[in-house]
Design a protein around this nucleic acid. Structure first.
Lengths: 185, 185
DNA sequence: GTCTATACTATGATAGAC
DNA sequence: GTCTATCATAGTATAGAC
């Protein structure tokens, strides 16, 4: 029964996004996903870490999909990138400043704590960065495109942190505007 | 005896920076700071949250001091800002990619969880942002200076996340370079 | 009256029994 | 495949030592 396993992962994605890794208990995951209590170690023999790693991969793939679709919306890189950021900002606000950045919290908690989760997050970041870099490469060349992509990811992740702390879109919108300036020149 | 209270806060600062809020247990704090277990609720009657809030304020003030000093190093805003980022990058690497961003992890975990900690982090971010904005205002005017300051904070916070995930300075250095471009124009 | 040892309740992750 | 036991540790509170 893979449907139940999927449901567990989906619930984990949500909780990790809102609360981070350590604040998210297995009990809560099981309860929220409606899965039987004893079933967790059947589906995830390596326990919480394995489950979290899979959740990170899934969340990351979802974001990658959003990035891909957003970057197709315009031929102009500046417009495409800032369009993505503004759409993301809307999503952050719509969630009551609870969501946005599904792996950010885990990335920070796990960086010094769990090599497995650190690598899981790193791989997602690399994937996103590659998508932006590919879009920017024709105009800026490979080296600069990589740097710009790094800045974009960093500014988005940081912008989400500020937005959630302020409960305001302003930081993310400022990020979008300034990145537009940087790319527009 | 305020010295022991101070020691507890200092230890909490370190642990929060590396691990975040929920991963940091009171036992660990007490043990690491050499303070007796029973003394915690004497010094911090409201428990862990109160302790964390004080630690956030202290870490934040330390960063503010670093920002202030760095911004005095050059009259050119671009040089001053990127100087700060590069110095920070050095510190991140020197700590084995465990430190840097003392409140980032807590900000994310607590944003949806503890109003008190959310506000504590928000206030620190506002303070830092005000410092950068003040430096940028003469050249860029008030509105743009605020936006640039938001981008700078966001890009730094995000850059730290990426650097810690990659165990590499590259993301932070890319951030510095691109911000230099943005401010240099 | 300032500080600390100890105990308590809840919940964490996990693993063996059914 | 799932329930229940286990064992550790969490955060907290109180009663007593200095």
């Amino acid at each position: 029964m893979t449907a139940k396993r999927d449901e567990i992962i989906a619930t984990t994605c949500e909780l990790l996004e809102v609360q981070g890794y350590h604040a998210t208990g297995l009990n809560r995951i099981l309860q929220e996903s409606g899965a039987p209590k004893g079933s967790l170690y059947h589906y995830f023999p390596e326990g919480k870490e394995e489950l979290a790693a899979e959740a990170i991969a899934r969340s990351g793939a979802g974001i990658a999909g959003h990035i891909e679709r957003a970057l197709l919306e315009s031929d102009d890189p500046a417009e495409a990138v800032t369009g993505f950021i503004r759409a993301l900002a809307g999503h952050v606000a719509a969630s009551g400043y609870r969501q946005g950045g599904p792996i950010t919290a885990v990335a920070l908690e796990a960086a010094s704590t769990s090599e497995r989760l650190r690598l899981a997050c790193r791989d997602q970041y690399r994937g996103w960065q590659a998508l932006f870099a590919a879009k920017l490469r024709p105009r800026y060349g490979p080296a600069r495109a990589d740097r710009l992509a790094a800045l974009i990811i960093a500014a988005i992740e940081g912008g989400i942190i500020l937005a959630r702390s302020e409960r305001s879109l302003q930081p993310l919108l400022a990020v979008a505007e300034e990145i537009e300036v940087l790319l527009g020149g």
